Amino acid sequence: MITKKLIKSLGILLILFPFLFLLGLSFSTNWRFPSILPLEITPDNWLGLFSFSGNLFESFILSIVISVSVGLLSTFTGFLAGKYISETIIREKIIFLSYLPYTLSPVLYAASIYYYFVYFNLTGNIIGVIVGQILITFPFSIILFTGYWNSSIKNLENLVLTLGGTKLQSYLKVLIPISKRMLLIVFFQTFIISWFEYGLTTIIGVGKIQTLTIRVYQFINEANYYYAALSSCLLIIPPAFLLWFNKKYVFRKII
């Protein structure tokens, strides 16, 4: 019994260690080898969050805005597109094409479409980054939703139309309410893809769109590990919240 508890405790410690280390590093200003613990613990890094050069908190808010926008647009457009794709005879071919963006790295993919973003003046601005990320998340949304639209859901839509309802009413009163769990799951997935996206944002944003992920890499390249740890802690917050929300309200209801 004691051995099982010890193994369980060690397992939990190993899982939490990277996060605890980052948190400890973010509260440090002097932690060097061979010291096991920081020589100085101070909240100065966190207190300076709003005033640090370039405003790290601004990058956090910018990343939230971009990821929420990408998640919402990809989810609802994929929801509608998935319905019509599931009914077409070329369904399998469209799904195959939806996988193509994932055969290239985001950097190569962004480089291949960069010309069109320059042509439409979408480089170096938030709109361009959102459009670029949607080109990655929208196909992923289609892949998930195409398999979701089964005969049972389509029969519910036909029932609403048979009883005199309109297309809009079938979506607002029936299809969206019964699909809210799936919509949440797809939103969370596309949000996470956007949240951690680096390569495409770097190229399309041409260094002007400083998302939190980009700031983490910048601090690492500058050997500023304390602010890199602080940025990483901020980077963990939304996915951790979504994981908690999923476990508490989405997956528990499905089970």
Score class of each variant (00 low, 15 high):
226 Y>N: 05
183 L>K: 00
227 Y>E: 08
192 I>E: 05
228 A>W: 05
185 I>F: 01
176 I>W: 00
214 I>H: 10
228 A>I: 06
176 I>D: 00
193 I>N: 07
224 N>V: 08
198 Y>S: 08
165 G>P: 05
215 R>K: 12
231 S>Y: 02
197 E>R: 07
178 I>V: 14
230 L>C: 04
202 T>L: 15
223 A>C: 03
207 G>R: 06
182 M>G: 00
200 L>R: 12
180 K>R: 12
219 F>E: 11
170 S>I: 04
220 I>E: 08
190 T>S: 06
200 L>Y: 12
171 Y>R: 04
168 L>E: 11
195 W>E: 11
178 I>K: 03
218 Q>S: 10
161 L>A: 06
169 Q>M: 13
161 L>W: 05
204 I>K: 09
199 G>M: 15
232 S>E: 05
161 L>H: 05
209 I>F: 05
164 G>P: 11
235 L>R: 11
235 L>P: 04
213 T>W: 11
204 I>F: 07
181 R>W: 10
195 W>M: 14
204 I>L: 14
195 W>A: 10
188 F>H: 06
177 P>E: 02
188 F>Q: 10
217 Y>D: 11
203 I>T: 10
186 V>M: 02
208 K>V: 06
208 K>W: 10
231 S>G: 01
182 M>D: 02
171 Y>H: 09
184 L>I: 02
188 F>D: 09
229 A>W: 05
211 T>W: 13
223 A>W: 09
162 T>I: 15
224 N>P: 01
227 Y>D: 07
215 R>S: 07
165 G>D: 09
160 V>T: 05
191 F>I: 02
164 G>Q: 13
201 T>V: 15
207 G>W: 07
200 L>E: 08
176 I>G: 00
